[in-house]
Computed example of a mutant assay.
Amino acid sequence: MHAMQYEITLPADYDMDIVRERVATRGRALDGHPGLAFKAYLIRERGTAGSPVNQYAPFYLWHDPGALTGFLRGSGFRGLSADFGRPAVRNWHGLALEPGPAQGAAPRAAERLTYAIGEDEDAAERVERALEETREAAREPGTHSVVLGLDPHRWELARLVLLEGRREERGASQGARYEVLHLSEGTR
């Protein structure tokens, strides 16, 4: 598995309904895409749930790294780059995908937390702790699923939690909080 995310920060006065409409009309293009586990179409809106920015920030989990590369070379990403500029793509080796009790429901919110593995920490022990934290997070009510990834270049862990409930209904988060506009699920 391989996780990736790009963040397109938009002007403070940008009408986020434009992004909502774009996802409503184009978001199903990756439904059933070979090699894709899922694409969560995520946004943050300035002043909502503590967000300081307007941002379109989709998060992908790929079963097949070749499909990821094909996507980045394909017409969809080319079109996005033409409309918004080519974004930097963050990526992590997928360590876990844990289903939650709300997996049958459409997720409406997401939380992404990234944290560095310190130079003084044992990386293997920290990853094992993160895997256990991921399993625990997946058991929480309202959780659709949880992904854990590792960027060994930065020695950074990233955890994405997809949630059934709106983010305003959830407690405080230490990470970025998003609205989920659509979830495309692919095929192996």
Rank of each mutant, 00 (worst) to 15 (best):
D31C: 15
G32H: 11
G32I: 08
G32R: 09
G32E: 11
G32Y: 08
H33L: 09
H33W: 13
P34H: 12
L36D: 13
A37W: 10
A37S: 12
A37Y: 05
F38H: 08
F38M: 08
A40C: 13
A40I: 11
Y41V: 07
Y41L: 14
L42V: 10
L42P: 11
I43A: 12
E45K: 11
E45V: 08
E45M: 12
R46Q: 13
R46P: 14
T48F: 15
A49D: 09
A49V: 08
G50K: 06
S51E: 14
P52A: 11
V53C: 07
V53M: 11
V53N: 14
N54E: 09
Q55T: 10
Q55D: 08
Y56L: 12
Y60M: 05
L61I: 07
D64Q: 09
D64L: 03
D64T: 06
P65N: 02
P65S: 05
P65H: 05
G66F: 15
A67D: 07
A67T: 12
L68H: 02
G74Y: 14
S75N: 13
S75F: 10
G76T: 03
G76E: 06
G76I: 09
F77I: 02
R78I: 00
G79I: 00
G79S: 01
L80T: 04
L80C: 03
L80Y: 06
S81H: 01
S81R: 00
A82K: 06
A82G: 03
F84Y: 09
F84A: 03
F84K: 01
F84M: 00
G85P: 02
G85M: 00
G85A: 00
R86K: 13
A88P: 00
A88L: 05
V89Y: 06
W92M: 01
H93P: 02
G94C: 00
L95W: 09
L95D: 09
A96N: 05
A96G: 12
A96R: 07
L97S: 13
L97F: 12
P99H: 11
G100A: 03
P101I: 03
A102D: 05
Q103D: 12
A105K: 00
P107G: 02
R108K: 02
A109E: 00
A109F: 02
A109L: 00
A110M: 00
E111V: 09
R112S: 14
L113W: 07
L113D: 14
L113E: 15
T114G: 11
Y115C: 06
Y115Q: 10
I117E: 07
I117A: 11
E119K: 04
D120G: 04
D120P: 01
E121M: 06
D122E: 07
A123T: 03
A123H: 11
A124L: 11
E125L: 05
E125N: 05
R126D: 06
E128D: 10
R129F: 14
R129L: 15
R129T: 15
A130Q: 03
E132Y: 12
E132V: 07
E133R: 08
T134M: 10
T134P: 06
